[in-house]
């Protein structure tokens, strides 16, 4: 390694040492996709990144390596984003099958937050 290359190496090293923590704190702010609320076909289903990625400690690629895109509400465009699709093991149903996580055919109001939950999330006061 000649002097010029060592110099370059040192520069790169120092940049990455400086930038490392910066990048970490940046990714800390957007460490996942937050809450996603589906409103079709029915209002409404809540998916929580906090529960899955933080509390349950699931890695990003357990979902973002084929099951879901990293763009909210993309999956809502699929015709089989329904209970039938889920029971065939698609989307949430890949895990919510009764063995890895509670069955999508049970505890309906655990995923479903309803019109009431949707309105609350949108800050709409229900007329009732």
């Amino acid at each position: 390694m000649d002097k010029k290359n060592i110099f370059l190496f040192l520069i790169i090293l120092s940049i990455s040492c400086l930038a490392g923590p910066l990048m970490l704190s940046a990714s800390d702010e957007v460490s996942h996709g937050g809450d996603i609320i589906y409103d079709k076909p029915v209002k409404a289903v809540l998916f929580s990144h906090k529960v899955h990625a933080e509390d349950l400690g699931m890695g990003c690629d357990s979902c973002h390596d084929g099951i879901f895109q990293m763009a909210s509400l993309t999956v809502q465009k699929e015709a089989d984003f329904t209970m039938e699709g889920l029971s065939k093991g698609k989307y949430c149903g890949a895990c919510h099958d009764g063995s890895m996580a509670f069955d999508s055919d049970s505890q309906c109001a655990r995923c479903h937050i309803g019109v009431k939950g949707y309105d609350r999330a949108q800050g709409i006061k229900s007329g009732e």
Partner: peptide, 9 residues
């Protein structure tokens, strides 16, 4: 009751 998901259809 347990089947109601408050979709309000």
């Amino acid at each position: 009751q347990n089947l109601c998901v408050d979709c309000e259809r």
